[in-house]
Amino acid sequence: MSMRKHYFKPGRDESEANLRAKISQALLSAQTDIDVVEKKVSAFERRLEEILNRLDDLESRLKKLEELLE
């Protein structure tokens, strides 16, 4: 390890101001689509529910099969 200590020099430059402006813009435009987002998430939740139901069904069938085999 070198003996010289490493400091950070505080301060902001122009490119950062641009990035912050772009972030604000991206956040604003994302918020306007929230209805669409909620519809997509609800559809996803329904699909997930179907998958879980299918798994439950499969599990109960397996259990019955095991009981029959015993």
């Binding site: 972030i23 991206a26 956040l27 435009s29 994302a30 997509k40 998430v41």
Partner: peptide, 20 residues
């Protein structure tokens, strides 16, 4: 986490990040 609030928020976050 797999709850509606987090899924929605993560979806929005992913959308924002995709713009970059």
């Amino acid at each position: 986490r797999m709850d509606k609030q987090d899924i929605t928020g993560t979806y929005v976050t992913a959308q924002v990040l995709s713009k970059f």
